[in-house]
Design a protein around this nucleic acid. Structure first.
Length: 447
RNA sequence: UCCUCGGUAGCUCAAUUCGGCAGAGCGGUCGGCUGUUAACCGAUUGGUUGUAGGUUCAAGUCCUACCCGAGGAGCCA
């Protein structure tokens, strides 16, 4: 056996004999010639067998090898523009072939069109196909870029609890479970409140973990279990927060462009759209956004769309509004200064305009919409207490949270970035369920 | 929770206004072909039409109830 290579590095081995450990993704044969498309976890490479170059028995084995069989192939790498694959452009002329296991012949996923229902039921196999494999490789790169940027900029990772007491929020959107003799506890929706405690010890922190929402949302933008990274920064106001967010998001996109070109190509992603993602990002106020929406509604002829785009001052944007708005930009756009009534109680009021708060959402371009929600938090204990009462929140549950403001309070801000929505946008795909290995939606917990 | 659409072979779908033998392509298998890209050619394999009940000589098709899924809204990342 020659050196076992990773297919992603195949260009380094032209002219050499190498070994690939992997699986048969596709087989097609033409008389004395067989093409195998082999995946090794790192890429897809075409391997070619000529009858005259191999022992008769080996050739017959290759001709009949079932799809998805696990194999060890030895052969010589050559560049050939005709060769498909990821990265593609290289193929292996087979000199040795060993079967680890011949797969059963009824593998359900063909190289043909399939319906969503079928593919989701077979998610454990679906992740083997190039598009899903590419998306999940990009996801992993996005996650490592997130940690890399934060770790390099003075943020420390603080894991926040997943099992949390009620905190008095509307429990219909929380998954609950029994916790010994302590009654009900809930799966976390955010680590933010704990992170607000953490910054007073560590200054800049982030938590990164799964988040659970029991909302009965049934759209292409929702999962019941998703991953969110939540940085929180002491001595930081709303303007500084936006600067951080645009640097952060730009870094993530840049890393994907640097490290995942073959995967982006496999997905047919328009890379030029991603190359535009550099700071600064446009900033518009909620009021300006409303004016833009009014303009867009004027220009719309479709009566149904016109109705969907209706919005009154005070409401948060729905998906149609975000989509319409972001189609007008080729970079992510900040929308700041939302009505306080539409946002959480802990957001700092706008100076001189208490009906508006220092919140900011980042909406991804090309119609993708919200990927980040963030704000400057209230730093004054008396004001925080008043806002709690105004929103009828139970004071006792937030005792420790209010106390944070009594001992060295500072202006501070933070945000949450939804990993799967970011992956959806960067990959240029239409549905969030493809951005996580095993999606959990309101109708699916299998496999 | 509400609105819309759908469920027929392993998969993707068809089955004519008006009820009349359950079909095709793909996949799998066998054979042919030295450059395939979702190859092509020939043969072959393949069915509890989502479930239960009803109408009828006869139901994939009509009626009733239910189950399951998808898309969208609201809510959110």
């Amino acid at each position: 056996m020659s050196q076992v290579i990773r297919v992603e590095n195949i260009a380094q081995y032209v002219g050499q004999e190498v070994t690939v450990q992997g699986w048969v993704y596709n087989r097609t044969h033409k008389g004395k010639l067989v093409f195998l498309l082999v995946r090794d976890g790192y890429g897809f490479v075409q391997c070619v067998a000529f009858k005259n170059d191999l022992p008769a028995e080996t050739f017959q084995t290759i001709v009949h090898i079932p799809q998805e069989s696990s194999i060890t192939i030895t052969g010589v790498v050559r560049a050939d523009e005709r060769a498909p694959g990821i990265p593609g452009g290289y193929e292996i002329g087979i000199t040795g072939f060993e079967v680890v296991q011949a797969a059963e012949e009824d593998y359900p996923i063909a190289l043909k069109e399939h319906g969503v229902d079928f593919l989701l039921d077979n998610r454990h196999f679906w992740i083997r196909v190039p598009s899903q494999w590419a998306i999940l490789r990009i996801r992993a790169t996005i996650i490592s870029a997130i940690r890399e940027w934060l770790d390099d900029h003075g943020y420390i990772n603080m894991d926040t609890p997943i099992l949390t007491p009620s905190a008095g929020e509307d429990t219909t959107t929380l998954f609950e479970t029994e916790y010994f003799d302590e009654g009900k506890v809930y799966l976390d929706q955010t680590g933010q409140l704990y992170n607000e405690a953490n910054i007073f010890a560590f200054k800049k922190v982030y938590c990164f973990g799964p988040t659970f929402r029991a909302e009965k949302s049934k759209t292409r933008r929702h999962l019941t279990e998703f991953w969110m990274v939540e940085p929180e920064i002491a001595f930081c106001d709303l303007d500084q927060l936006m600067e951080i967010e645009e640097q952060f998001v730009s870094h993530i996109v840049r890393r994907v462009l640097e490290r995942r070109q073959p995967e982006l190509r496999a997905l047919g992603r328009d890379v030029s759209a991603l190359e535009k993602i550099v700071p600064p990002f446009p900033r518009i106020s909620y009021d300006q956004a409303l004016e833009m929406l009014a303009e867009i509604r004027e220009q719309t002829t479709d009566p149904q769309q016109k109705q969907l785009l209706e919005i009154e001052w005070g409401s948060d944007f729905g998906a149609p509004h975000e989509t319409a708005l972001t189609q007008r930009f080729d970079k992510p756009v900040f929308v700041y200064g939302y009505p306080s009534a539409a946002k959480a109680f802990y957001m700092e009021p706008w100076p001189g305009r208490p009906e508006v708060c220092k919140s900011v959402d980042l909406l991804a371009p090309e119609g993708y919409g919200e990927i980040i929600g963030g704000s400057e938090r209230i730093s004054d204990p008396a004001l925080l207490l008043r806002r709690l009462h105004e929103q009828n929140q139970p004071e006792e549950a937030y005792r420790w949270y209010i106390d944070l403001r009594r001992y060295g309070s500072v202006p501070h801000s933070g945000f949450g970035l939804g990993v799967e929505r970011t992956v959806t946008w960067i990959c240029g795909i239409t549905h969030i369920r493809e951005t996580i290995p095993y999606p959990r939606t309101i109708k699916r917990v299998y496999p």
